[in-house]
Nucleic acid binder design. Sequence first.
DNA 1: AAATTGTTTCTTGCATGCAAGAGGCGGGCG
DNA 2: CGCCCGCCTCTTGCATGCAAGAAACAATTT
Lengths: 238, 238
Amino acid sequence: MHVANLPFLSRLGAGPANPQRQTRAAELAATLADEILRGGLAPGRRLDEQELAQRFAVSRTPVREALGQLAATGLVEHRPRRGVIVAVIAPQRLQDMFVAMAELEAAASRLCAIAMTPDERQGLEALHRASQAAVREGGIDEYERFNQEFHSLLYAGCHNGYLRDLLHATRARLAPFRRAQFNLRGRLASSWREHEAVVQAILRGDGDGAARAMREHLATVSGAAAEYVAIQSHQLSA
Amino acid sequence: MHVANLPFLSRLGAGPANPQRQTRAAELAATLADEILRGGLAPGRRLDEQELAQRFAVSRTPVREALGQLAATGLVEHRPRRGVIVAVIAPQRLQDMFVAMAELEAAASRLCAIAMTPDERQGLEALHRASQAAVREGGIDEYERFNQEFHSLLYAGCHNGYLRDLLHATRARLAPFRRAQFNLRGRLASSWREHEAVVQAILRGDGDGAARAMREHLATVSGAAAEYVAIQSHQLSA
DNA sequence: AAATTGTTTCTTGCATGCAAGAGGCGGGCG
DNA sequence: CGCCCGCCTCTTGCATGCAAGAAACAATTT
């Protein structure tokens, strides 16, 4: 690339209210992670340093740093001297992740039953009640939003930052493989009832009950893993 | 979609020598991770690029890549344009990690009760029986080795690679704060009895019981978190 | 003396250059 | 006709150079 170092151009498009400027490498890592988790970059796809450098109008150095960071998080795989590819998740590992996710959510539910503040309990109950309307009217999209918020309240309510990080990260990794719409179709009512069991157990301070209810709830959802092979092969062919 | 640090999936510093040659950056990252987890580099300590470059006889480039990877795993903290320091773990987060660790081990125990093969069950029982000798003779070091092996068998027996990774990573992060000897002194017999409860539940296929027993076992151990403040302030002053 | 501001120095972030490994290709060989 | 081996090219890994930000310092002012 023959473009000289033009640092005075770097703020273009960055927006005016840039609170605290990050490094290029961090921005790139965030952008690429986003694309991967959204499914825009299929597993197995090669990430060429020069190509990315051109695309983002930077030199290879920050690109390399970004790829290295992504490799450290497991989102991409680094084969020494042979380049970087988007990580390919084996079907067995995906299955493991769904199972582990259920256990993590169960643990969070248990902690919620013990540790949630009265306000948080009220908030959870209120949200759950509100979602009932979406069930009655069959609003899948709306219910899915309630569903996400429901789980987010649990992540917050467990009052455990580390567990919350594990949950967020695992959820993000599983996001490309969740077909929420698909899973919810025809299951709105039963999903709501499963949530109901979780909520009631939490409200009565029954940690074991909350954990069990959540595990059962997710056991049905995680059947989605079966889809994986089809999705994976489809993505690889693209 | 926002991707936070995914500190827990790091395989840095784990595992034996890689047969295939790695890059300098990866070696450096592994070495530094090891030093940090062993406590050789205290939290808050500044990591100077040039200094590290000299020490390892490389240029700043691979050092920077290594530090970036460590930052992605959460082991160090990167302040843009202000350098890198060894991550300082807040007391609250440490407490959270102990609690989460207990939940993860409980989950593993549950899965063991369900999924362990007959061979694995026999192996676990055999190890547990063998460790009884160390208890009788008061061999703390010996018992600690049995203890580590015991937990390793559970990590393997749950047949869930993702959960195993979470457990390994969390255990590694907590390693500097575990004072195993301290915790075991005078507790050998009770620790063994707690293990006994876990083993028996697993052998009879009682997942809930195994999880509960493991949670109770670790609840006593995690009191170690209280030590943290003293350790931390001591390390910071060095 | 404390605070503030201008200056100097040090460190980081990024671009570029170069050498070595990996993969592709064509020619010689079985 | 297929296989193996050397060459060539492309990519990666690392070193180096340079500019900008941050910290350290000094001098001036209040």
